[in-house]
């Protein structure tokens, strides 16, 4: 296996972690919105920001993969 292949696997692993993280954020945000529809806007904003933070980690992985490619 070449270094590119290994890097791709690494990027995939990072994506798994980020996927789980964003999934949890999304799930909890949905839950919160169902419980308190009146602060839906605030929840949405915070969920988006948090998702962006989690996503950044996966993107670091992607960038490492691109560095090898």
């Amino acid at each position: 296996m070449t270094i590119t292949g290994i890097a791709a696997i690494g990027a995939g692993l990072a994506a798994i972690g980020a996927g789980m993280g964003i999934g949890r954020i999304g799930g909890s945000a949905m839950d919160a919105m169902a419980r308190q529809p009146e602060i839906q806007g605030k929840i949405q904003t915070s969920a988006l920001i948090l998702a962006a933070f989690v996503e950044a980690v996966a993107l670091f992985g992607v960038v490492v993969a691109l560095l090898q490619g």
């Binding site: 962006a52 993107l59 960038v63």
Partner: peptide, 13 residues
Amino acid sequence: VSLMIRLFANITA
């Protein structure tokens, strides 16, 4: 750096 990579990687991907 995360700002830079987020935008770059999202659009490129």
